[in-house]
Design a protein around this nucleic acid. Sequence first.
DNA 1: GTCTATAGCGAGATAGAC
DNA 2: GTCTATCTCGCTATAGAC
Lengths: 196, 196
Amino acid sequence: MQTPDNDIKMRILLAAKKLFAEQGFDGTSVRQICEAAGANVALVSYYFGGKENMFGELFQVFFPNDLIASIDQNMEPLEGVKLAIREITLFRHNDPELIRIIQQEIITNSARIQKIREYVMPMWFLLRRWVEEGRNQGLFHYRSLDTAFMSVVGALLFHRQSEYWRAITDEGEGTAEQLAEDLTSFILGGLGASEA
Amino acid sequence: MQTPDNDIKMRILLAAKKLFAEQGFDGTSVRQICEAAGANVALVSYYFGGKENMFGELFQVFFPNDLIASIDQNMEPLEGVKLAIREITLFRHNDPELIRIIQQEIITNSARIQKIREYVMPMWFLLRRWVEEGRNQGLFHYRSLDTAFMSVVGALLFHRQSEYWRAITDEGEGTAEQLAEDLTSFILGGLGASEA
DNA sequence: GTCTATAGCGAGATAGAC
DNA sequence: GTCTATCTCGCTATAGAC
């Protein structure tokens, strides 16, 4: 593996990530990706065996699989929730594109959903268990676990990454640390966390 | 206008709404829509003048434009936020498809984004102003308006409408009223609402 | 490894018959 | 209004030259 700029395979993956995030999988053609990457169309077949497989490779390469695998499953609920908020926020700050792709695939019932499940679901399971155990321990106060969990995920994933929100937001993104802090405050409030 | 079942134009729109929600605009072909609607492909051109225009018509017909226009702009912030949560939740409960379409178009920078803006943005402006004024009045407590607002929107829009979440939710949807109540509780908590 | 050329298909749109 | 037939285009994928 060479440096990203010299490695054509990596250049294709980076272009694909960018364009899938902006236009969706179906809205992006292999030709368009290769043009952006300065690569020949035939290389997608050569390196990945087609558009679908290239999509899967994005998660193999860019999703923080090691990080998730290394998380201590027995962490205290409050610490766990805070960790998840922080890690997801930092990850999005460094690589907003992958999160946008994940959102798109979740919202549609795409043919790629199985790939998304494979990589992303472990994180959701962890987060959900922390949200649940936090209530069991009397730390959080909410009625429906499903609704609480989905609201947390919504608040975490949905951000002003698209042009759409430009007309209605005015602060700029701020630092990732600040964002994580603000989100932690919102989500813990939403979960009815006992005052710290 | 006849009853939906007999009105071919309406049958096409209903099929389009369903399929766009499940597969995205680019992932759905006009042929597929017409097959689902039991209509001839040529009718999309005849009635709407093409696929893009048909998309716009969806919002003309199904988006609650009158409801939004009728909202009292000078409502108190707390009441306004509660109203928005309730109306959006009830709307999604009755017609989850349109919300899914809106999410998809927002997340990608699609060519349809201008249409989405035109119909949906007025609601966001109202909601954002209520969130802002609530803080001005000392009712809400958060640091960043942008982050608070986006978190509210995320919690409102992002729900288990897709297959993806089946493996990790177990309560079933419940009534719309219950859902609205739970969401209100989460969001007001997130906004740091003074205890009622 | 990288290219050109092309196969093969399915897309959106519409002319024109009924 | 609704249909069939067809146009034209762009898509993914790949065979085969280099």
